[in-house]
Simulated assay, not measured.
Amino acid sequence: MTSAAGGLPWTATADGLRLSVRLTPRGGRDAIDGIEILSDGRPVLKARVRAAPSEGEANAALIALLARELGLPRSAVTLATGATARVKLLAIAGDPAALAARLEAAGGPR
C-alpha cells in the first residue's frame, strides 16, 4: 500500500484513507490539480473550489468535490483536522486499495 512517506498524500487506515489536501478557496472552479510536495517535504493533493473560506463553505465544497471525484456519498468524506488552515487532513471511509486507485486517477495530470 502506498503512503505519504512514499510520496503520495494518503495513507491507508483500518476503515479507509487519510488524505492531506492543500485547498485554494475562490479558485475559480472546483477541481483537483494534482499532487504537490510542500516546502517541508510533505506531499499533498492540490484542490481548488469556487467557494469562499467563510462559515465552512470552502470545506463543504472540498468534501463535495472529493466525494464526487471518488464516487462516494458526502458522508464518507470528513474533515479530520485543518478546518481553518490551508492544508487539511480528511478521513475517507471505504476500501483503502480502491480509494487509493481512484485518487491516483483523480490526482494525475489534467
Rank of each mutant, 00 (worst) to 15 (best):
E55Q: 05
S39D: 15
L38P: 02
R50L: 03
S54L: 13
L70W: 05
L62G: 04
L66R: 02
D40C: 00
A31C: 05
R48K: 13
R50N: 01
G71S: 12
E55C: 09
K46I: 07
N59P: 06
R42Q: 07
L66K: 06
L70K: 06
L65G: 04
G41V: 05
L72G: 08
L66Y: 05
V49C: 07
E55M: 11
A61Q: 05
A60L: 14
D33R: 15
L38S: 12
P73E: 15
A52R: 13
L45A: 06
L66T: 05
N59S: 14
A52D: 10
E55L: 09
L38M: 13
L62C: 11
L66G: 02
P43F: 07
D33Q: 10
L72H: 05
V44F: 04
R68Q: 15
E69A: 15
R42D: 10
G34A: 12
E36R: 14
R50C: 10
G56R: 00
N59G: 09
A52T: 14
L65W: 04
G56D: 01
A67K: 09
S54V: 15
K46V: 06
L45F: 03
P73D: 15
A61F: 04
V49F: 05
E57Y: 04
I37D: 06
R74Y: 02
A67N: 12
R50S: 09
S75M: 06
E69C: 08
L72M: 12
P43H: 06
S75R: 15
L72E: 14
L62E: 07
G56F: 00
L45N: 03
I32E: 06
L45S: 03
L70N: 06
L65D: 03
A47F: 08
L70I: 10
L38W: 07
L65P: 02
L70H: 02
P73V: 12
L38V: 07
E69W: 01
L38K: 11
G71R: 14
V49K: 01
L45D: 07
L65S: 02
S75I: 08
E36Q: 13
A67Y: 10
I37Y: 04
A64S: 15
L65M: 11
E57P: 00
A58T: 06
I63E: 02
E36K: 15
P43I: 00
E36D: 12
K46T: 08
S39G: 00
E55S: 09
L70Q: 02
I63G: 02
R50G: 10
E55D: 11
N59Q: 08
A52P: 01
R74A: 09
I32G: 10
G34T: 14
G34W: 07
V44I: 08
